[in-house]
Each structure stands twice: as structure tokens, then as C-alpha cells.
Design a protein around this nucleic acid. Structure first.
Lengths: 232, 232
DNA sequence: TTATTGCATTGATAAAAATCAATCATCGGG
DNA sequence: CCCGATGATTGATTTTTATCAATGCAATAA
């Protein structure tokens, strides 16, 4: 582990208040590694040997059953994944692969559990991170169960618009195939949804979306902070 | 708080290893209360003043948006709900109401957070419980995204069969209306799914289901431990 | 440049699920 | 005992979504 990496890790919210000595044990056991795009990292069912933290790039969490596959989430910096499996020492419920070239931090699960028990600040950081993950899945589930495909797409665009600081033009951060799966629909249907939304305040141009009339987009999407707000 | 209640609470896994003095502060601040069936307990968007623990009965977690409503989960003894909101001191993402007459323990969120910071055993218990909740939502989401309506119903029956110790006849633990919403379909569709499954190893009789040919039911349901296993 | 490849789009069709409407139980109260 | 309410079922229909098939389009490598 390079010193520069160590400093970056130390500055992460999850480690910032950890006792110096315990931080050393974590960092010594951990390693930061770069991966190309589209590399399989873990497979559901495997035992949770490591906790992962995305430092750069982004990672897709997905799941399969009897030949079907679906994206569950895209993890971007700086967030963890497979934290629950690490905490419980249980098998992963999701597989993971890089979307873009990525830099990840891998910490052996046993060390995470050890330091959790010894350092209240770390325990607090871990439980907060896990609570954030939980709430994020709950929101995804509400999104899926309470909304139609078009509403999901509309709200996704609204969120992009918010994150961009209400720029006139926003860009999809990853391919439409992935996005469709995240939003619980087929690529064909996503395409049609984008098409349909063009009469409701947007203009599509490949991966770029011009927001022409946000109010119209909101009317059709019915945004709800208890589903869409990426804070809280 | 009655002494008998206190003993019951002390025996819960979440409290069993907590320091005696801190347990006292938690229990003093908490109160156990009985509620009739179909009583609203909390509403999404409210601030998380209490952590809830279901001691008896059962509670439905549900969510709404623009006039639609869906069940997210049924919580039965002994489990918590709204733990993530408590940890983060954030608004509830789900509403809750009793299904059956229920006995609940309410602990002020502030006390939960305080004791979390002071007692590693409690911290460990809380994070494990939260990890269990997280994994449970992930499994629900996989269930929804990877399976058809009939498969979801089939696997639900298989799980009931497992929990009953493979009894010949299993009984639905709550109304079909609730079940339909949990499984992400309309009551009408649930009815038809039950009907369709009768040619695949089951026999319906109101809320009772006779399991005639489990293998046939499995063939059509394609169970998957990483979705259905209620342990892990 | 031109193939090649992978993704995105579009149209036609099929399947799945929701909705609407009516009927049928079941259960508790008068 | 019947009555009314609630929930479940069934059938007909519409809507939504997925699937299948064909085409287009852009990036890449020969």
C-alpha cells in the first residue's frame, strides 16, 4: 500500500475518526488495486472474504437466477459494497463487476469485524454506511413497485438534472443497457420511454439529454423525495 | 415497564450482551405497548423518534406515492423496524400499521444511538440486525426483478412449507390482499396464480394449502437459496 | 477505407399483469 | 336467523411490458 493511497483512505468518512493504531492494522491488511472495465470481481454465493470500497471508477452489482440476470445497483466513489455480508460473515447475495476501469480497496472481512468491535468511531461509521445502503435499496424497491416504467425513467432524468446542478444538458453516466436493467425494464422499453418523454420536456441525443421543460417532466414523473432524494 | 416485560426484553438477542447499567437506561426510556389490529403506527416522512421492536403479533411496512400504495414487508416477532432511520436520524421511508393485535417495544432513537456508542456488544447486535434487514430487502428485490408472478407465489409457498417443517398442509399467515401486495401483484393476479399452481403440486382451500407434490412445485418455481433462504 | 462488432432503435407481436365488473363466500352483528 | 360488509374469486378487457426481428449507427481494427 502506497503512502499516497493511505492518505486518501484516511480522509474517507468511514475511516476519518478511527484510532491511529487500528487504522494501521486495517490498512496493512488491505490492498488497493486497479481493475479494467467489465471485470468480474465477486460472484453471489461466495463467502464474504473482503469488504470492497470503490475509490475510482464504478462497479455494477447484479444478481442472477435460472438464466435471468438483473442489475441491482451501480456503486460509485466513495462507497462500499457487500458490507452486510462482511458484517454477518454470510455469502454474498450479489455479484459485482467493474463498469469502467476502477480502483478498489479490499479489506479482509475479519479485520473489519475486529476493528468494529474495538473502535466505537469505526462502528458508528460502518453502521451509518450500512443504514445508507439499506435506505438506498428500500428507495429502489419503492421506485420499482410504485411507479411505471416511464415514471422511473422520468425520475431518473430528474435526479441527473439535480446532480448536475440543473445544467441544461445532462449525460447518462453509463450505457443504456445497464440503465434499463437498473430501472427494471428491457433496453427496448427504455428506448421507447425516452422517446415518449420527448413530448414531456426533454430532448434526447444519444447519451445526452437536454432538459427543456423541467416542470413538464415533473408532471409526468411525479417525483417524491422519499424515493428520489439521494441524501437522507 | 413491568418486570416481566423487562425479563423478556433482556432475553432478546439484541439486548442479551448489553451492559447492565446501559440496559437499564434503555429500558427505562422505552415502553412496551399493545395495539389492536389495523392501527397506524408511523407514517413515512416523519422523523425517527423511536426504534420499534415487534414482541407479539405482526406489523406491515408499506409505502405510498401519488395515490398508489404497496406493502414492503411484514415484520413478525422478534424483529425491529425503522432501524436504519433511527441510526441515521433520518425520516422514515416506510409507514407501518399493525396487521394483528400486537405488542411492541418503543425505544427512543436517541437512547439507541447513545448506547450504540457506549456498548460494543449492543453495537454489534444492532449492526447485525441491520445487516439482516438489508439482506432481506435485497432478497425481496431479487425476487421481484428476477421472477414472474407465478414463480414468486410458488416460492412463497415453498418457504411456508419449509417453515412448517414440511407439513402436508400449510396456512397463509395473513390475508391474500396483503400477500398480493408483498409479492408485487394485484389480489386478482394472486388468485389466478394460486389457481394455476394447482396443476403443479398444490391444492388450495381458502387460506390452507395442501402440498401434494413438492417436486412439481419446485420445477415451476425454481427456488434459489440466495433469494429464498430466510437464514443467512 | 471497409468490415466487424456491439449497442441502440424501431416496428410487429406476444405475453404478462392490471383493471373493471360481477359474483360468491364468509363472518360478525343485529 | 338474516343482513351487510369485507375479502376472494372469476371472467372480460385493456394496458403495460417483454420478446422477436430487422435495421441503423457509431466505434474499432484490419
Amino acid at each position: 500500500m502506497r503512502e499516497s493511497d493511505k492518505d486518501i483512505i484516511r480522509s474517507l468518512k468511514i475511516f476519518s475518526d478511527v484510532d491511529e493504531r487500528l487504522f494501521e492494522t486495517l490498512v496493512t491488511a488491505a490492498y488497493a488495486q486497479r481493475f479494467p472495465a467489465q471485470v468480474d470481481l465477486i460472484h453471489e454465493g461466495e463467502s464474504a472474504d473482503f469488504l470492497y470500497i470503490v475509490l475510482e471508477g464504478c462497479v455494477e452489482l447484479f444478481a442472477s437466477s435460472h438464466g435471468r440476470e438483473t442489475s441491482m445497483a451501480i456503486v460509485s466513489p466513495v462507497s462500499t459494497f457487500v458490507l452486510a455480508a462482511t458484517v454477518k460473515d454470510a455469502p454474498y447475495l450479489m455479484s459485482a463487476r467493474t463498469v469502467d476501469p476502477s480502483k478498489l480497496l479490499l479489506i479482509p472481512s475479519q479485520n473489519v469485524r475486529d476493528v468494529f468491535d474495538q473502535d466505537p468511531a469505526f462502528a458508528r461509521a460502518i453502521v451509518t454506511e450500512l443504514a445508507t445502503c439499506y435506505r438506498s435499496v428500500v428507495k429502489s424497491m419503492k421506485n420499482l413497485k410504485l411507479r411505471t416504467a416511464i415514471e422511473r425513467v422520468g425520475n431518473y432524468i430528474l435526479r441527473l438534472h439535480d446532480k448536475s446542478g440543473k445544467a441544461d444538458i445532462v449525460e447518462l453516466p453509463f450505457g443504456k443497457r445497464n440503465l434499463a436493467s437498473i430501472l427494471g425494464m428491457t433496453p427496448e422499453n427504455l428506448s421507447r420511454a425516452f422517446g415518449a418523454l420527448q413530448s414531456h420536456g426533454i430532448l434526447m441525443d444519444g447519451a445526452r439529454i437536454e432538459i427543456i421543460d423541467r416542470a413538464a417532466l415533473e408532471t409526468v414523473s411525479k417525483p417524491n423525495p422519499l424515493i428520489d432524494d439521494f441524501r437522507s
